[in-house]
């Protein structure tokens, strides 16, 4: 049975207003079953208010071998962070 069920990635929103976060993966025959399985496997301790599932084969990932060219060029561009503004004292939580 396991061999014929495709793999699905599960994303759970823990509270209204927050974004869906990757929770893990599971096997299921179709999207409906994947959502039910996700409900049973990943939300039984009140972890979620919304579930997304996507078949793992539809996820395309960046290549770890290309990490150097993809991410390192950002290392010396600190000016991209909005940390050079003088903020008035009244402004909190920035």
């Amino acid at each position: 049975m396991k061999n014929t069920f495709p793999l699905w990635e599960v994303f759970i929103r823990s509270k209204q207003g927050l974004d869906h976060k990757h929770a893990g993966s599971l096997h299921a025959a179709d999207a409906k079953m994947a959502i039910e399985n996700a409900r049973d496997v990943y939300t039984r301790r009140q972890e979620g208010v919304s579930i997304w599932v996507v078949e793992s084969k539809h996820i395309h990932a960046s290549n770890p071998d290309e990490a150097g060219s993809l991410y390192e060029p950002a290392n010396d561009k600190v000016y991209r962070h909005p940390t050079f503004y003088d903020l008035p004292d009244e402004l909190k939580h920035m």
Binding site: M1, D40, V41, R44
Partner: peptide, 12 residues
């Protein structure tokens, strides 16, 4: 259970 996911579902 036949697979882990359904084992948990039925236990729930």
């Amino acid at each position: 259970g036949p697979i882990l996911e359904q084992d948990i579902a039925l236990s729930n």
